[in-house]
């Protein structure tokens, strides 16, 4: 992980300085300085430090795996016609949001199971994102908000007795933001509405047990989306604010400076798709595609599905 820099002029009794360079990240290194006195006595001191990967995680909705197949609902079905016709779709969503606000839910929304499933798939796919670019750490991509979540994080710290020394944790990059929800009706995604960031979105630091340095990125759809979700998936007489689960990613670095493994349902929510980038490049083991099964499991959750531990 470390080595002598090319700028180190010489080695030996006449050398007045040495420069060490970082060669790689996602690891720890121990630097030991030993003094040997002319009479042969020695004094040694050392410290171990970790430098993590510069890690970026993008959460995005990939419409491909969830777009409803042609057999799911007849084209003459009212929900099919209503959602696929852009002008009707606007009316439908206005109506469904009002119903959701009144606590109408899955059991009493007068829709069939197939209509509900079609609506869930169609609306999610219709508000999908483009696949993240090979380098997402550009101003245009971050500013364009064509994602559900975006975060970037890198830290360094010293390690003593196998644990992170809290006083030494420093951050090279900390950034977490939520994207927007494109409208699903027009086919242009002509307008996007704000999503709701979790109060803990952007939280970073050392976990209370001192084992991990982490950053949390967490959000969910905005007001209208939550109301429509109550109508389609919520309980009867449900509180629409409580109906919608959160999506999150948590970048976690351990006491060896390594990025903790990615697990959907743990440091990633089970939906949507996630792409992890390390030091600016897509991480080959960090691609978590979407599936219809995961979408259906996700929409059965509610607001209690949010990131909890480990945290500060």
């Amino acid at each position: 992980m470390v080595g002598f820099s090319a700028s180190t002029p010489s080695v030996g009794p006449s050398a007045d300085h040495v420069t060490l360079a970082i060669i790689s990240t996602n690891d720890k290194a121990t630097i030991t300085l030993t003094y040997v006195s002319p009479c042969g006595a020695t004094a040694t001191d050392s410290f171990t430090f970790a430098l993590t990967n510069d890690t970026t995680v993008v959460a995005w909705i990939d419409k491909g795996p969830i777009f409803p197949g042609s057999g799911l609902l007849s084209p003459s079905d009212q929900v099919f016609m209503g959602l696929t016709d852009p002008t009707r779709c606007v009316g439908f969503l206005g109506l469904w949001a009002s119903y959701g606000q009144q606590g109408v839910g899955k059991v009493n929304n007068n829709l069939t199971a197939q209509e509900i499933q079609f609506a869930i798939q169609y609306l999610n796919a219709g508000s999908g994102n483009n696949q993240p670019p090979s380098n997402p750490n550009t101003f245009d991509y971050v500013n364009g908000q064509d994602y559900r979540l975006y975060q970037r994080f890198q830290a360094y710290y010293e390690i003593a007795n196998g644990a992170i020394n809290p006083a030494t944790v420093r951050y090279l990059t900390t950034y977490a933001t939520n994207g927007v929800t494109p409208e699903p009706c027009s086919g242009f995604q002509i307008l996007s509405v704000a999503s709701q960031p979790n109060p803990r979105n952007g939280e970073f630091g050392l976990t209370s047990d001192g084992s991990l340095v982490y950053q949390l990125n967490e959000a969910r759809v905005g007001t209208a989306g939550q109301q429509v979700n109550q109508f389609l998936n919520g309980p009867i007489f449900g509180n629409w604010v409580a109906a919608t689960p959160w999506i999150w990613s948590t970048i976690q670095f351990d006491a060896n400076g390594k990025t903790r493994s990615w697990i959907q349902g743990s440091n990633l929510q089970i939906f949507p798709a996630y792409q992890v980038f390390t030091n600016g490049s897509p991480y080959s083991l960090g691609s978590f595609p979407e599936s219809l099964a995961n979408l259906m499991s996700f929409i059965a959750l509610n607001t209690t599905s949010q990131y909890t531990v480990p945290s500060k």
Binding site: T84, D85, P86, T87, S186, G187, F188, I190
Partner: peptide, 14 residues
Amino acid sequence: FMDFDQNGRAIRGQ
């Protein structure tokens, strides 16, 4: 901004 087909239905993405 949207175009309609012959049945008066708005055409997605046009």
